[in-house]
Amino acid sequence: MSDAPTTTPVIEARGLDLVFETADGPVHALKDVDLTIRKGDFVSFIGPSGCGKTTFLRVIADLEHPTGGTVTVNGMTPEAARKARAYGYVFQAAGLYPWRTIGGNIRLPLEIMGYSRAEQAERVARVLELVELSGFAKKYPWQLSGGMQQRASIARALAFDADILLMDEPFGALDEIVRDRLNEELLRLWHRTEKTIGFVTHSIPEAVYLSTRIVVMSPRPGRITDVIESPLPRERPLDIRDTPEFIEVAHRVREGLREGHGREE
């Protein structure tokens, strides 16, 4: 868990607390969360449902406001970072606008951020190629499969120059085979773009395959129980999942999850 002194922290959470006031009383979604994410990290968040993974990502994105502690993103408050358009956010559902074509959907952030028309077209073409959807620019979302829609929503988050990518279970609804493909693609993308990625998942193999660090969380109140540095190399073919190192890390994640649960019962 040692912070490498050479790399700068991109996201830093200190003593983060978040309590939702609901009709049936307060819900402690995050409690005393400390975490540093460094530049170029691929950090996965894993934990049982309701442990605050989404909430943590949303706090980073300034979509939720902590009730205690501090977060900084690129050294700024999350609000300042959001206004500086520091990150792209991929939601659990693709959430493409049905009245826009795939190209139009990817153009949406570019229009809002005031890119020129020529640059919009150039960037749309580039990110579509990045997610292997070239040729689908003029199709409407309903003409694409769920996996393709999810790829389009990733392309949308890549279209502008944010060096942080926050992804909330982007592949949760997809089948295993499509998921494997998209995982490979995502890793390649991460290499090429050198972005810092925060990634929420329910799948242990997915977390281990993708991440440089795995954050294990436990619920009620949501907190971090373990942070695992991956010993795997950055270059990862799919069959790395059969190596002893991979299985070893996966085992540790499973133990961490079980422990978090055990403390609960």
Binding site: A61, D62, L63, R82, K83, R85, Y87, G88, Y89, F91, A93, G95, Y97, L108, P109, I112, M113
Partner: peptide
């Protein structure tokens, strides 16, 4: 809420 949150992450204005 998700579609609105998306625009919030782009820091889109009310008229946008």
């Amino acid at each position: 809420a998700m579609q609105l949150d998306l625009l919030r992450t782009y820091n889109a204005s009310g008229p946008e």
